[in-house]
């Protein structure tokens, strides 16, 4: 069957992503900062993804929006929660996934799924930036390092430090006092990764961690957090090549299902 291309758009708190799919093939995608205009970010993300796929909006049979900004995507046919989308996306990439850990810009969630990619249980962090990308972003600023460089830097850590505050604001004060004490940046960064991993693994224990674990969201690009979290969970994790687009990918897969359903 000749399938029509569909799109998934994930408008998160920090970044907006779009994925264009036809059948099982990803034709194009984009990752852009959301900024203050989520509708504009959604439009732009879709435009860039379409450009990469050499298509125009008119070619698309169906669009599903997800993420916190999903309500501000008026041109989407459907809006679906990011929990359902991350489950679909992770299942598509790693069909043996039973646990999805998504650490995004300002929330983190743990989703347990079954062999068909259906959500069985989930837990989300409550109204607090602890254990999220934002936590690392604030700390990167305090340490004057690039967010992207943190993973690499932490590999050079030689000394074990502990950041005991979960709270982003209090942890930042701790970081400042560690800097004042003359501790090495690498060691502080490593301790911060431990802190995020600690927080997320306790969230994961609430749901239960089943093999295989797939990690999604921007923080999955940080090797330090991935290493710490893998150690705490006692198992390796699948890391997608582009962990940030998994939500948008899931939305595109739901688009495909809905487009098929509509065409029946």
């Amino acid at each position: 069957m000749d399938r029509l291309p569909v799109a998934g758009i994930d408008v998160g708190s920090l970044s907006a992503e779009a994925v264009i799919m036809r059948g099982d093939e990803v034709l194009g995608y984009s990752i852009l900062p959301t900024g203050a205009d989520s509708r504009g970010a959604a439009e732009k993300a879709l435009a860039v993804a379409l450009e990469n796929a050499h298509m125009t909006a008119g070619d698309l049979a169906f669009i599903v929006a997800t993420g916190y900004g999903r309500i501000s995507v008026p041109f989407a046919n459907k809006r679906v929660t990011e929990i359902t989308c991350h489950a679909k996306g992770a299942h598509f990439l790693f069909p043996k996934t039973r646990t999805v850990i998504d650490i995004g810009g300002q929330d983190s969630k743990v989703i347990q799924i079954d062999e068909s990619g259906r959500v069985v249980d989930f837990a989300m962090n409550d109204k607090c930036a602890a254990g999220t990308g934002r936590f690392l972003e604030v700390m990167a600023r305090a340490l004057e390092v690039d967010l992207e460089a943190m993973g690499d830097l932490s590999k050079k850590s030689r000394k074990h430090l502990v950041i005991s505050s979960m709270c982003t604001v209090f942890a930042e004060s701790e970081v400042v006092s560690l800097i004042a004490r003359g501790e090495a940046k690498e060691d502080i960064i490593s301790a911060l990764h431990e802190s995020v991993a600690e927080r997320v693994s306790s969230l994961a224990q609430r749901v239960g961690v089943l093999h295989q674990v797939t990690m999604t969201g921007g923080v999955a690009k940080n090797e330090g957090v991935v290493r710490s979290l893998g150690q705490k969970l006692g198992m390796p994790m699948n890391i997608p090549p582009e962990p940030q687009i998994v939500g948008a990918l899931g939305a595109a897969i739901i688009s495909r299902e809905l487009a098929d359903g509509a065409g029946r």
């Binding site: 916190y68 679906v80 929660t81 990011e82 929990i83 359902t84 079954d114 068909s116 259906r118 959500v119 069985v120 249980d121 989930f122 989300m124």
Partner: peptide, 17 residues
Amino acid sequence: ITRLEAFTDLIMQRRVR
């Protein structure tokens, strides 16, 4: 809203299962 929608998805998918 996000939690309620996800929970509704979860229980619908459970009924399918």
